[in-house]
Design a protein around this nucleic acid. Sequence first.
DNA 1: GCCAACGTTGGC
DNA 2: GCCAACGTTGGC
Length: 154
Amino acid sequence: MRHWLLKTEPSTFGIEHLQAAAHKTTSWEGVRNYQARNLIRDQIKKGDHAFLYHSSCEQPGIAGTVRVVRAAYPDKSAFNRDDPHYDAASTVADPRWYTFDIKLVRRFRRVISLDELRAHSKDALEGMILLRTGNRLSVTPVDDAHWRFILSLE
DNA sequence: GCCAACGTTGGC
DNA sequence: GCCAACGTTGGC
């Protein structure tokens, strides 16, 4: 069982949206980066847990945890011409992009801020991908030890 | 296959 | 809005 971190912009889709969604579940569509695609397609399994991270917002940080309730399947938004994530190169016969479903497990009492995570970048959270400069990957693996430590921060 | 140009991400 | 960092594209 692996742990993950999923970035999202709360102005588009944040933890409040997930909380309000039917069954508190959503499909994680729109990832258009090959590295992230490979993780989704090959490594993210049903039952895995992930942090929901808010980016490009007033308070960047981890807002809660989610569980993978369905593993990878083709991302239909790539087939839809009207969708902003449409990709003509992705076909039903040979899909290029994948999505998966997540369900909200718990919204933290407070957002664990990027600043607070950074404060531990040289000890407990050393090597965490999110904290590396220039990291833009929207789906990243999280070490078990990092996972437990971050939960303990709340 | 190289690499310059361009687009995107995301913190500040 | 700035800009560093990185991914993608396309000419050669």
